[in-house]
Amino acid sequence: MAKSKTVYRTKHANRIKRTPGDQAVQVLIYLIIAFCAIVTVLPFIYVVAGSFATERELTERAFFLFPKEISLNAYQYIFKTGDAIRGLRNSILVTVVGTLINMFFSCTLAYPLSRKYFKGRNFFTNMVIVTMLFSGGMVPSYILIAQILHLTNTYWALWLPGAINAFNMIIIKNYFQGIPQELEEAARMDGCNDLFIFWKIILPVSKPVLASISLFYAVTHWNSYFNAMMYINDRSMEVIQIVLRRIIFLTTSLTTDSTFDWGAFGTPPEKAVKMATTVVATVPILIVYPFIQKYFTKGVMVGSVKG
């Protein structure tokens, strides 16, 4: 209530005090912001438009945000060759299972660390802090995963190594800490144990933070590329990011690699296929983006308060 009042007051004050020069600066600021927003989205619109265009239009017109003639050739090609679809399927599997694993490990670690009466809390918290400050680096981790645990060509190589992100875990922990003690104490009076309190009280009231952190984890899995490149060589297990990179950067594989019968829709619309693959890899993120956005501002702030 009080807040909206002050906002109103400043608006009012602004209106009175503004000089013409100041007004011009204000307009300029609005324009700069608009420019930033446009520069951000333009590449996406360009690619989406291009992916629906005919090959002819793509060569004739340099730039357009709406194709004159809609063509689904590129998407037909993608669905027919199956690489991108298989990549999408694999990515979904990696993302869903990976996020569940992340949440299991992060929550079960966060809960004991959030309890003041947990003896050993400092020791385990310090353990987490050490992992944030120092790491063995890429090569020892690779040897561990590939040569000691033999996880190459299994998705465990993508799921286990990053199972806990210390920053995300701390955000969950801080949220658990902020839950009023009374809730827990009432249950304890009824003779409930810590597991029951964790499962039936703490987790249900933490839904907002759990939702936002799972989305963060999910986005990380979806976007992860380097680990998949290092640990997955089996082409049938490729995730979408790998497929996308191959189609964009190693162009030749697209046209010459497969003994594919083009018949129905002519030669592959190469440029459009690249664009369509980019779209296919991006769309899932854009679908969940509104949900992420709802939560992430909060998440970032919680993290920054008690990093």
Partner: peptide, 30 residues
């Protein structure tokens, strides 16, 4: 502590095991 908050110590096992294997073992690899 172990008796009265048994579950807290059980719950922390996966996380600690994870850190030992994937954070601290690679440090030994140095």
């Amino acid at each position: 502590a172990l008796q009265s908050h048994k579950w807290l110590y059980i719950l922390i096992i996966p996380g600690v095991a994870y850190m030992i294997v994937f954070n601290f073992l690679p440090m030994l690899g140095l």
